[in-house]
Structures are given as structure tokens and as C-alpha cells.
Design a protein around this nucleic acid. Sequence first.
DNA 1: GAAGCCCGTTCGGCTATGCCGAAACAGCTG
DNA 2: CAGCTGTTTCGGCATAGCCGAACGGGCTTC
Lengths: 255, 255
Amino acid sequence: MIQSVDRALRALAVLQGARRRSLGEIASELGLAPSTTHGIVRTLVAHGMVVQERDSGLYRLGPATLRLGNVYLDNLELRSRTLPWAEDLTRRTGCAVRVAVALASDAVVVAHEPRPDGSRQMAEVGIVVPAHACAVGKALLAHGACERPDRLRRMTGETLTDPRRLETQLVAVRRTGLAAEVEEAVLGECGLAAPIAAAGGLAAGAIGLVVPAAEWPLDAAARDALRHAARAVSRELGSETWPPLHPAAEDEAAS
Amino acid sequence: MIQSVDRALRALAVLQGARRRSLGEIASELGLAPSTTHGIVRTLVAHGMVVQERDSGLYRLGPATLRLGNVYLDNLELRSRTLPWAEDLTRRTGCAVRVAVALASDAVVVAHEPRPDGSRQMAEVGIVVPAHACAVGKALLAHGACERPDRLRRMTGETLTDPRRLETQLVAVRRTGLAAEVEEAVLGECGLAAPIAAAGGLAAGAIGLVVPAAEWPLDAAARDALRHAARAVSRELGSETWPPLHPAAEDEAAS
DNA sequence: GAAGCCCGTTCGGCTATGCCGAAACAGCTG
DNA sequence: CAGCTGTTTCGGCATAGCCGAACGGGCTTC
């Protein structure tokens, strides 16, 4: 791990935390001298990853980050393969559909199909949700695609914060191929998700339905449609198995 | 400029060029030894900016890039201030609206309102267009927000590739506050754009209408609505002038 | 089936790289 | 106008990281 590159990426992470930061703030958060930080930030600015506001001298993220993220999406086979199925699922179930991949102990939404009722909905692509608090995240977690978070951060009153209870759910996810979430991330919103396997049989992502709490639980037709879509996408990606394998091949046959 | 950070960012740029690359490809494009490149890429992988495909060993961009880009958008005041006006413009003119900022000699779309006729349109947020070939780009270029490209890359038969002809247009843009583009970026698509000034009076972005070639040229009502929106957003951002000032204060009064 | 090849990866020594302290500079505030 | 806060520049020292060479796994070829 190269020190200065690591520091640069951590500087970007710091800038993710707030709209804008001063050089000194970045420096102290990184535990570095301001002059050291200056060199790093300067390089990031030269590439457009960071911009310095002309008047205040403060630093913000730059447009090159957006380009990078967009290219990532364009190159993501998981996304392109899933989009037709997501559209189909929306029409069939009337629910919003989201597709997510793992990033450390979070789930990142890489595709989002708004529910077809025409209501105004914000685009969710790019948002990050702690894996333990959303359905797609639990699906990823259950199949070893996500790192275990060291602390289960509470997001609503319903959020699971007890590792043991989470583990119990994850076992069920592996058995049924479906993960559920009831107002654990945002109040009034529930979700149901299924893991997606890629070539090699390991989980590469998850696809899920998101519905208002009033429409929960979902009926059997929606559950079947979701499972069917997840299995179909997995096959398209070259997986021979579904649900995905678990990398840590611990046998649960005993339970 | 810190060497290793610069190299890391250039490695990311290389990965933007193709879906996936081998370590050797990245190394040779950077002009570095494979082992040197390995350290850099390894660090990028550790932060999720790059992922290594488990089976092939090839490298792709990672989900952290998406998160970064999304945070950039969320923190962009230009975007949040412009969104209501973009929506208004769409309804008023029936055209698609895009908002862009400068990145080196390109324009990056940071907001996109599809035309309201209900046709299936792809999301354009994050796409990058050479500044000299699109209306928003010309608006940025005219006000010194974009770097001059060293070579005007041809995109369609209509693309301006002669720097002198481009310069003539840019002078007109500064005079009228509007930049036009007729099938210069993609065939069958025309655009009209106006610069947006931020606090300090310099151009921070541009807002533009995009229409099929069949509907070109736009009528006076659309032109006025566009200019009005650009001026209104500029005022909201704290600019006291519109059109924006030009940083290189070269006098054009003589012409 | 074995040998060769092509990659990705690891290791160690040398030196160039970038880290830090201190000093200059600019922008605000009192 | 002077004092302050915070960004930026500069130079010497030390270390971080660069490269060449060797290792190991996967795949093709003979």
C-alpha cells in the first residue's frame, strides 16, 4: 500500500464528509502537516478530482469524480444485464427496484427503476446504505460479498443493532434466497432483495424491491418474480448456481 | 505535484478508457514497471476505487468511484439551484435541459431533465462532451471556464475543427449570452446554451436546451426563457453580473 | 502429460521522492 | 493600520517507494 496514494484517497474520503473543507481541516483529519496535505490536495486539484473555491480558498470534490463514477456504471456488466429485468420487475410488481453492489460494509445502489405510478421520486443511483440496514445489503452480507461492519449503526428505531439477531437473519437469507428489511433504514420504507451471482458462483450484487410500509408484506407473486429475476441475471452473468455460494465454506447443514 | 498520487490518478484515467485492463497494459500506458504499477493499483483496490476480477485478474473501476461522484453532485450548489429552473424550462419549452460544468477542455453534464413528451431517454448525468462540440461547452469556453483544447476533435461532419471559426463563434457568444450547436456533437441533435455565473461573476457552469434537428432553430420565446433562467440562477448563486465576466480581461470593444 | 510461456505478485537494495518545519504571503477583523 | 488566521512556498533530511529480478500459478502448445 503506497503511503501517499493512500493519503490522497483518504483526503477524498474526508471531502465526502462535508460540502467543503479548509486545508487545515483536511490536514488535521488525516493527522498530517498542512504543507504535506497541500501537496496532495494540489495534485488532486490538477486532475479535477477536487476544486478549490476561488473566493474562500476552501476545497470541494471536483467534476472528475462524476466522470469516473459514470464510466464505472457504463462498464458494469451487472448493471446492463440487470436493467431489462429491473424494468420488467417494476411493471410486474408496481414496486421500485434497486440493484446494489458491495463497498466495504455498505451497499451502493448502481441501478434504480422508480415505481411506475408516476410519483415524483429522486434518483437513487450512487447512494450508499449500511449493509445491515437494507434488504440488498443483507443479501450481500449473507453471501460474503460485504465486509462485516464492526458496529451496527442505528438508523431508525427498527434497525438491527444486535450482531446475533443479524446473523440469524443472514442464515435465513441463505436458506430462502431472500432478504427482508422493515423500516430499518428509513421510516416508512420496506424492502425485499435477492442476491445475484456472477461467473464463479459468488455473489456480485443484489436486486431488490422497495415499497412503502403500507404495502408490506409483499405477496407471493412478487417474491417469486424477484427470485426469478435474480436467478435469470445470475445465469446471464455466467453463474451455474443460484443462490450464490458463500466464500467461507462453513457448513450450515447441521442447523 | 506529488508523483505517486499523480500516477494513481493517471492509472484511473487509463481504466476509464476500457472496460477492463491487465496490470501490464496499465503499466505500459503509464510508462512504469509492472511492479511499480502493482503497488499503485493495489492501493486503489484497497479503497474500492478499482476492483480486480476474481477469475481473470483484470482490473476495472470500482464502486467507490460512484459514491464519490454522487457526493459531488449532492454538494454541488450549482446543481441544486438549477434543478427547479431546469424543470421549469422543460415544461415551458418542451425541450430536454442539461446543465454542465467544465473539466479541462470538456463539459461534464451535472443535471439533466428529459423532455416531457414521455419518450424513453437515457440519463445523461455524468457524460462528458468535448467543449468545442456542444452548446454548453461553447458557453463555458467563451467565458474562460474551460481550457482551450489543443486539437478540435471531429465528432460529426458538422463539428467545428478550425480554431479561427470557433473563436469567431465564441466572440458572438460573449456578445449575445447564448451559444448554439447544430449537429456538431451527435447527428440529429442541436443545442442552445447560456453561461451561468457564480459569486464573483465568473462562469461556473452552463445551462442548455437540447432538441432534435427537426425542431431547430428554437423560437425567440425559448431563447428568452433560457437566458432568463441562466440569469436567475446566476443571481441566486450570488453573482452581480450576467453574462459572466471573462477572466482574461481582453478588450473586445475594438472588434 | 510435460514443458514453455505469460501474468500477477513478492522481495530487497538504492536513490530519488516527498515529508515536515519554518518562513513568506494574502485576506479579514478588530 | 496592525494583528491574526490560514494558505502557500522553500529547502534539508530521511524515508518511502521505485525498479530489477526472482517466484508461482494458470493456460496453451507441442
